[in-house]
Computed example of a mutant assay.
Amino acid sequence: MKKKLLILSVIIVVAIVAFTQVKQARPTVTAIKSVFITPSLIDKKGKTIKARVKVPKNYERITYKQGSFQEFIQNYPLKSYGAKVINYDGSEYFYQSGHFGVLEVPVPKNGLQQCADALIRLRSEYLWKINQQDKIGFEFTSGHYCSWKKYAEGYRPKIKGNKVSFHKTAAKDVSKANFYRYLNLIYMYSGTLSLYNELPKVTSSAQLQVGDMLVYPGTPGHIVMIVDEVKNEQGEKRFILAQGNTPAQSVHLLKNPNGQTINPWYELEPNAYIEVPGYYFDKAKFIRFKD
């Protein structure tokens, strides 16, 4: 009898551990479904995000002011159709059926540029391009703000637990190479949680726009970005999503595993349940980079 009780106890413990691990991983139950759904609104010849995706019937693409972050994202260049998602070490990501485009974003071989980091890079590259480098800066998960301006002047963080102080320990260096060293530092100490805590929240679907991010703030968490947008006469919007991932890999455009008639466009609502290939957001939260 004692032996039977012991066996039963072991089975229960194993089941609890397995359930906990599955819940922490937050895999989407329909991850494989997108293998069987072929997007009908794809232009394989398209070389930018907005050129790759056709506008659904009765919708119009929303365009933004030239030079804006939104315009920068919509016109971001893509690799040729059929490009694979590649991990930071040069290997192919195991799941190649959830995307329909790969952005021309280099992936550092150090493995640091993961999901939140990839979007931080897009934002930082934009600010660099428009010569607003002074606006480049992000909070660490500890809440301490780390700017490119101070890093370029030679200030480096001294980190001890949750305590961070900055000290001038290097010569001034405003080069692009040093800029990427700065981003590597941000990748190490920032993430989905710090972005969520730092950035403004978007609480209405009507307010959502290109550049906004759907986030599950956690350690680990996940985050994807809105990269294209359409609207119909009733004011209903649909969106295209892109993500980096863990392990660090190519930034890629996501199919919609549940949108058979409008794939790859997504309907997005705050606090809704939203699935993307390989992941789900059970109570969708949205954030926006500061102007």
Rank of each mutant, 00 (worst) to 15 (best):
V202L: 00
L185I: 12
L241T: 02
E269D: 14
K255H: 12
T261H: 14
K231G: 11
G211Y: 03
N271R: 14
G221V: 09
H252L: 12
E236H: 14
A242H: 09
V224E: 01
V227C: 13
I240K: 03
G211I: 05
V230N: 05
A206T: 07
V251L: 15
I223E: 04
Q243T: 11
N256I: 03
S250G: 05
N197C: 06
Y266E: 01
I223M: 10
V202M: 00
V251Q: 13
N258A: 15
E229P: 09
S205C: 07
N245K: 15
I186R: 08
V227E: 08
Y273A: 13
T203S: 10
L268V: 06
S204K: 03
S205Q: 11
E229W: 03
Y216R: 15
S205F: 05
E229K: 01
Y273Q: 13
M188N: 14
K237H: 03
V202H: 00
S204V: 03
K231A: 09
Y216V: 15
E233A: 15
G235H: 01
L254C: 12
M213S: 02
S205Y: 09
Y266W: 07
I262D: 10
A206N: 09
N258R: 14
N232H: 06
G218K: 05
G211S: 07
G244T: 01
K231N: 11
T261R: 15
S205I: 06
Q209K: 13
L185E: 10
H252W: 12
F239T: 00
T246E: 10
G218F: 13
V215C: 13
V230H: 07
L268G: 02
K255T: 12
Y189A: 04
Y196D: 05
P200S: 00
M213Y: 08
V215E: 11
P257Y: 08
S205H: 08
L183C: 03
H222K: 04
D212G: 10
P270R: 08
H222E: 08
V227D: 09
V224H: 02
M225A: 08
T246C: 08
P264V: 00
D228G: 10
E233T: 14
Y180R: 04
Y189C: 07
S205R: 11
M188W: 09
G221S: 07
Q260V: 15
K201F: 04
M188A: 14
Q207A: 11
S205P: 04
L195Q: 00
E269Y: 13
F179C: 04
Q243G: 11
L199N: 00
Y273S: 13
K255V: 11
N271I: 13
P264L: 01
Y187A: 04
L254Q: 12
I240D: 01
P200M: 00
E275I: 10
G218I: 10
E275G: 14
W265M: 04
T203E: 12
I226W: 04
K255S: 12
Y216Q: 15
Y273P: 11
N184M: 05
P200V: 00
N271F: 14
H222I: 06
T246Y: 11
I262K: 11
K237I: 03
Q207S: 11
L253A: 07
P217E: 09
M188P: 09
N184V: 03
Y187V: 06
L199I: 02
T246L: 13
H252I: 12
Y187F: 13
V230P: 06
H222W: 05
